[in-house]
Design a protein around this nucleic acid. Structure first.
Length: 407
RNA sequence: GCGUCGGUGGCGGAGCGGUCAAUCGCAUCUGGCUGUAAACCAGACGGCCCAUGGCCUACGGGGGUUCGAAUCCCUCCCGACGCA
C-alpha cells in the first residue's frame, strides 16, 4: 500500500505538493504520468521515458492489456513493470473509460459540441441535443458491468467490477483504479446521477474484491483508487466525492471527460470533499494549461494521451509559441531548436528542419523525438509547479506560464 | 523510314461525344486531436468574381466534324515498343 505525504500547500487550501511512496519507487507530486496503454509509451523506449523525459511513473490500460497479450502473460512476466522494463511505479486504468469511448462516446461528444455551436445560445436546442441517446458501438453498460467487443477480433467480453480488479491484480500495477461509468460531459443531470450511482456501487464491490484478493495473495503492494464522476454538475460531483471519499481507498481518481471550461471547477468541488491525506489523480488531463488549473484545484497526478498522440501527429508544445505543427511549410528551412527554452534531448540535439524532414519522409524517429519533447514538456511543467508550490511562488508561476502559453 | 500503342491538372493514372474544371491515389497546403479503436482524422488543392451562383483558361500543338469534343477525323510534334 502506498504512503502519501503532503509537503507543501497553496494558500487556496486545495493545491499541494507531496510524495507518493509505492513498492516500486517514489512519485513527487504534482506529477505528469505518461500513458503507456499497451505496456509501451508509444514510440519511446522505457529507458528514454525515464532518462530523457524524466517521468516518475507510467499508466497502462486494463482493457487493452486484457485483450493483448492477456493478463496471464503479464502475471507470468512478473507484472507490468517487469514486462516492459519500467523500473518505477506503474498505474493501470480500469477499462471504465473504454466502456465510454467504445460506445462511441467520443464521437458523440464531438458531435454534440458541433451541434451546440450550431444551436448557438438556444438553450432548449442544446438540451435537446445533450439528451439524445448515444448510438451503441463496441461497448454497452448495465448495472452489473460492461460488455465489450474486442477491437482486435470482434469477440465479446465482460468486465464486472470484480473482473476488472482480477485483471488489474494479474497485471500488477502499483496503483489500480475501480471500474467506473463515464458519462459524456453533455449528459443531463439525470443521466449523470445514474452514472455516479452505478459507479459508487461498483466502487464498493471493487474495494471488497481488492481486499479479498490482497489477502489471498498476502500482498499489500497494490493500492486501489476510487473514481469520482458527476460531469459538470456541482451537486453530483460533491455527492460522488463524498461517497467515494468515505470508502476505504488508498487514493482517488477524478474521472469524466470535460468540456474545457468545466474541468477546473469540477476538480475544485471534488477536492473540497475528498479526504485530504490521500492522493488524487486527475484522469485523462491534460494539456499544459489544464495541468496548471488541475494542480491549483487540488489534483496531485495526471495522465493524458495528448502529448504522445499529438507528437505522432506532428504537433509539439512550446513554451512561448503555443502548439506548433512541425509539418507547416515554414519549418522546412528552420534550423533552430524546436523550443529554445526547452532542455530536453530533442531540443538540445535536433533542429526543426530535421524534425520536419522526418515527418515528411514518414520516418518513425520523428514521432519518437516529438514524443520525448512533449512528454518532457509536461513532466517539466509539473516539476516546476511543485517547486513553485514548495517555494510559495505558485501564483507568479501560474501567471507566467499561462501568459506564455497563450502567445 | 514503316508499323503499333500512347501523350489528361506537381506526379501516377481514370474518363473515351453532353450530367467534365475532369473519378481516384500520391504530393502539396491548412485544421483538429485531453483516463489511445488515433504514426490518425478532416478540409482545400486551374484562375477570377457582385460567389449555395457566374465568368475565363485548360485534357501535347494546329485544323476540322458536330447544336455540343478530353472523348470522333486530319495533320504536326514528342515518347515507348516492333520491323527495317
Amino acid at each position: 500500500m502506498l504512503k502519501f505525504t503532503i509537503e507543501g500547500r497553496l494558500a487556496n487550501g486545495r493545491g499541494r505538493a507531496g510524495r507518493i511512496e509505492t513498492a516500486h519507487g517514489v512519485i513527487e507530486t504534482p506529477a505528469f504520468i505518461p500513458v503507456g496503454t499497451k505496456a509501451t509509451v508509444k514510440a519511446v523506449m522505457p529507458e528514454s521515458v525515464r532518462d530523457d523525459v524524466g517521468a516518475q511513473a507510467v499508466l497502462a490500460n486494463t482493457y487493452h492489456l486484457y485483450l493483448q497479450p492477456g493478463p496471464e502473460i503479464l502475471r507470468k512476466a512478473g507484472g507490468l513493470g517487469r514486462f516492459m522494463n519500467w523500473k518505477g511505479p506503474t498505474f493501470t486504468d480500469s477499462g471504465g473509460f473504454q466502456a465510454f469511448s467504445l460506445q462511441g462516446g467520443m464521437q458523440a461528444m464531438r458531435a454534440s459540441k458541433f451541434a451546440k455551436e450550431a444551436a448557438g445560445t438556444d438553450k432548449e436546442a442544446a438540451e435537446d441535443i445533450s439528451d439524445q441517446p448515444i448510438a451503441a458501438g463496441l461497448a454497452a453498460v448495465d448495472d452489473d458491468g460492461v460488455t465489450f467487443k474486442s477491437i482486435l477480433d470482434g469477440s465479446t467480453h465482460r468486465f464486472t467490477p470484480e473482473a476488472s480488479i482480477d485483471i488489474q491484480h494479474a497485471i500488477g500495477a502499483d496503483i489500480i483504479f475501480t471500474l467506473d461509468e463515464c458519462a459524456p460531459p453533455s449528459a443531463i443531470h439525470e443521466a449523470q446521477k445514474k452514472a455516479i450511482d452505478r459507479t459508487h456501487v461498483w466502487a464498493e464491490r471493487c474495494v471488497t474484491h481488492h481486499k479479498k484478493l490482497s489477502n489471498e495473495e498476502r500482498s499489500t503492494d497494490q493500492s486501489l483508487f476510487g473514481i469520482v464522476q458527476g460531469g459538470r454538475h456541482e451537486d453530483l460531483r460533491r455527492e460522488s466525492a463524498r461517497a467515494i471519499g468515505a470508502m476505504d481507498f488508498d487514493g482517488f481518481g477524478i474521472g469524466g471527460t470535460f468540456e474545457k471550461e468545466d474541468m477546473a471547477s469540477a476538480v475544485g468541488w471534488v477536492c473540497d470533499e475528498l479526504p485530504e491525506g490521500k492522493p488524487r489523480h486527475l484522469l485523462g488531463i491534460g494539456e499544459p494549461a489544464d495541468l496548471i488549473l488541475g494542480i491549483e484545484n487540488g489534483a496531485d497526478t495526471f495522465d493524458c494521451v495528448a502529448p504522445t498522440r499529438l507528437a505522432r501527429n506532428a504537433a509539439a508544445y512550446t513554451s512561448a509559441e503555443g502548439r506548433l505543427n512541425i509539418l507547416n511549410a515554414r519549418f522546412v528551412t528552420d534550423f533552430g531548436p524546436l523550443d529554445p527554452h526547452c532542455s530536453c534531448s530533442t531540443c538540445k540535439n535536433y533542429t526543426r528542419a530535421y524534425l520536419a524532414h522526418l515527418f515528411r519522409a514518414k520516418e518513425m524517429l520523428g514521432a519518437t523525438l516529438l514524443s520525448i519533447h512533449n512528454l518532457h514538456f509536461l513532466v517539466e511543467l509539473t516539476k516546476e509547479a511543485r517547486k513553485a508550490i514548495l517555494e510559495g511562488s505558485f501564483d507568479i508561476f501560474k501567471k507566467k506560464v499561462l501568459s506564455d502559453l497563450k502567445s
